[in-house]
Amino acid sequence: MMRIPTLIAATACVMLTAVDSSAQTPSPAPTYSYADLADRALIAPVAVIATITEAIRLKPEQAPGVAPGHARVYVEASANTLIRGAGGLPPTLSYLADVPLDARGKVPKLKGQQVLLLARPVPGKPGELQLITPDAQMPLTPELEQRVRAILTEALRSDAPPPITGITSAFHVDGTIPGEGETQIFLSTREHRPISLSILSRPGQERQWSVALGEIVDQAAKPPPKDSLLWYRLACGLPRELPAGATGDLDADAARSARDDYGFVIEQLGPCTRNQPIKTS
């Protein structure tokens, strides 16, 4: 019989139900947007591809906060490929995960399934992991692996954009001819690194905007591509409207232009779509 480690010591004294290995085809895998993956991957000290070797379903009373249609399972897995993780990992891993039930209300067969885990190590317990979120055990696909690797690769770059914490100020200057103007919007970040938006308007031309990750504004810079780390920081970190305090030093016309230009940027970025909002328990 499998020995349950201290990770779930509180549940060791109650009966656990082995996952039904005869369950039918697992429920369709959740669809993760770029924001869903970035939300999880960027805060995960460990990203690892593993193969499940054993899974045991916990009794409902020992799994508070589980979403309807899901069950909490204790999992043992073999580590295959470490994508991220200082110091490496032992070959055998254990953790808790919330998984969707099949049409019969049973946990689908998990043994033998390859998964991508986004987790943190349990201090002093080699091989024991705590998933970043209860649903951060994701069925592995080549696309999923590629997307997570791309996010983590961008995040490790020296010029990786930091999380945005707010907007400090906005300025607008009219040009020399009617319809010409420039707006600059300065953002605050968690790492106190400067980020600014620049929006240029010229008569008869579509507005152009760019983002600068430093003190120098490059007028030739282009907007960040969708589903990139910079796009994520902006689309998911900026407020939908320019705060009133950001235009406090502008006259009414300049403030109106700045708000309009900011709205243009938000529209161009598009929505920060989250198909699987982070759940905690």
Score class of each variant (00 low, 15 high):
Y95A: 05
Q114D: 14
V75L: 01
L110Y: 08
P91W: 07
L89D: 02
P68V: 11
P123A: 11
P100C: 05
L129M: 06
A55W: 06
R120K: 15
R104N: 15
A67I: 09
T92H: 11
Q62A: 15
D102E: 05
E128F: 01
P64T: 10
V107R: 00
Q62M: 15
V107P: 00
V99D: 00
A86V: 13
L96K: 00
G88E: 11
I56M: 15
K125D: 12
A63R: 04
G69A: 10
G65W: 06
G85F: 03
A55D: 10
Q113F: 04
G105M: 00
K106H: 09
G127W: 02
S94E: 06
V107E: 00
V99M: 05
V75F: 03
G69I: 07
G65N: 12
R72S: 03
A67C: 11
L129A: 05
D98Q: 05
L101N: 06
L129E: 02
Q114W: 06
I83M: 14
Q113V: 11
A67R: 15
L116C: 07
P123E: 09
R57D: 09
P91M: 10
L96I: 01
A103G: 13
T81V: 14
P108L: 04
P126W: 07
T92Q: 13
L118P: 00
R84G: 08
R104Y: 12
V66W: 05
G87P: 13
P91V: 12
K125L: 12
G105A: 02
P121V: 11
P108Q: 03
R84Y: 09
Q113D: 08
K59I: 04
G124C: 05
P90S: 09
H70Q: 12
N80G: 13
R104S: 15
A119F: 06
S94F: 00
G105I: 02
L93P: 03
Y74R: 11
L110E: 09
G124Y: 05
A55L: 08
G85A: 07
L58T: 04
A55F: 07
A103C: 12
P126Q: 11
G69Y: 08
D98K: 03
A79F: 03
Q62S: 15
G105V: 01
V107F: 01
A63E: 07
V107I: 02
A63V: 05
R57C: 12
D98E: 10
V122Y: 04
E76W: 10
P68F: 09
A79Q: 11
Q114C: 10
G87A: 14
V73P: 06
L89Q: 02
G87L: 14
A67P: 08
S78L: 14
P64G: 11
E76M: 14
A67T: 13
G105P: 01
A79N: 04
Y74E: 06
H70D: 07
D102N: 14
P68N: 13
G105N: 02
G105Y: 00
L82D: 12
A119N: 06
G124M: 06
P68I: 10
A79G: 09
L118T: 01
P108E: 04
P90W: 06
E76F: 13
G127C: 02
V122E: 12
L58W: 00
P108S: 06
H70V: 00
V75K: 01
K59M: 08
P123G: 06
E61P: 04
L96Q: 03
K111M: 09
L117V: 01
L116W: 02
G69M: 09
G87W: 13
G65A: 08
L101C: 07
G69W: 09
A63M: 07
L58F: 02
